[in-house]
């Protein structure tokens, strides 16, 4: 087997279970346990699903259902106790620590509920953060970062510090940071959790646009209104995937109704 996308052949998946287009994300029997052997907590239990390129999926469920754990596993941040995560055919936990870091850098983008912008860097520098470890001309880094800021509509605030802009603008800058390396998968944890409705909708529209452009977007949310922007909703309960729902209606149309998978 030849290498795919620069990653070793042994980390590639075994292939598609059917004849459909290869999935962008494939969770195979994912389980995650925490704690000491005598007091194990099973956060995820044998979760399987596939997401196609350009799909926008929301993960929903009550607190403690395993949403954040699942996002962490999909983000190559925390190894599963059992199962595999294939992203664009690459078994991310078959990669070594450095290669997995390189994979996150080049292929994944993260948006966090708390934004996690460095308070001592202005918005432009925050967006340039993922480029700090890339070999690239500083002019190009700057141009890319400005482009990402423009894409989310806050390029005019490039020289402001995070505490000099609103929460919505911080969230947009955090999205620009996630986009600056042009990832194929965007993972967002409660991206509207700290935003008012107007700013929340702007962010959700942006995520939907990105998905429409071909990026696979996975979002954890408690908000049903935010989830309606996604084309698919994965419902978790007690660590299990209990429903996989495809939404047929775009949120702008507000016609209600969902189609089960």
């Amino acid at each position: 087997m030849t290498s795919l996308n620069g990653f070793p052949p042994e980390t590639l998946g075994t292939g598609k279970p059917d004849s459909r287009e290869p999935p962008m994300i494939e969770a195979q029997g994912l389980s995650k346990e925490y704690g000491r052997p005598e007091a194990r907590v099973q956060a995820l239990k044998n979760v399987d699903f596939r997401l196609e390129p350009g799909e926008f999926a929301a993960i929903m469920g009550p607190s403690g259902s395993g949403k954040s754990t699942l996002l962490s596993l999909l983000g190559a941040l925390s190894a599963p106790s059992a199962g595999r995560v294939l992203i664009d055919g690459v078994d991310v936990y078959g990669l070594g620590s450095d290669t997995r870091a390189d994979f996150r850098l080049g292929r994944l983008g993260f948006v966090f509920q708390q934004f996690h912008l460095a308070p001592y860097l202005n918005l432009l520098e925050n967006v340039m953060l993922p480029l700090a470890v890339r070999k690239m001309e500083s002019k190009e880094k700057r141009a890319r970062a400005l482009d990402a800021l423009a894409r989310v509509g806050v390029d005019h605030l490039a020289n402001r510090l995070p505490d000099e802009v609103s929460g919505g603008e911080q969230e947009r800058a955090a999205m620009a940071r996630a986009l600056v390396n042009r990832p194929t998968v965007l993972l967002a944890d409660e991206p509207t959790g700290n935003l008012d409705q107007a700013n929340g909708e702007k962010v959700m529209n942006l995520l939907a646009e990105l998905a429409a452009g071909g990026m696979t977007v996975v979002m954890v949310t408690h908000s049903a209104s935010s989830a309606r922007f996604a084309g698919r909703i994965l419902h978790l309960a007690d660590g299990r995937l209990v429903a996989d729902e495809k939404t047929a209606v775009q949120p702008e149309k507000e016609q209600g109704g969902c189609q089960a998978a």
Partner: peptide, 16 residues
């Protein structure tokens, strides 16, 4: 720790 966690999440290697 959060800041360092962020570095790791966005693709910094341990060596970075």
């Amino acid at each position: 720790s959060r800041e360092i966690g962020l570095w790791r999440a966005i693709g910094f290697r341990r060596s970075h």
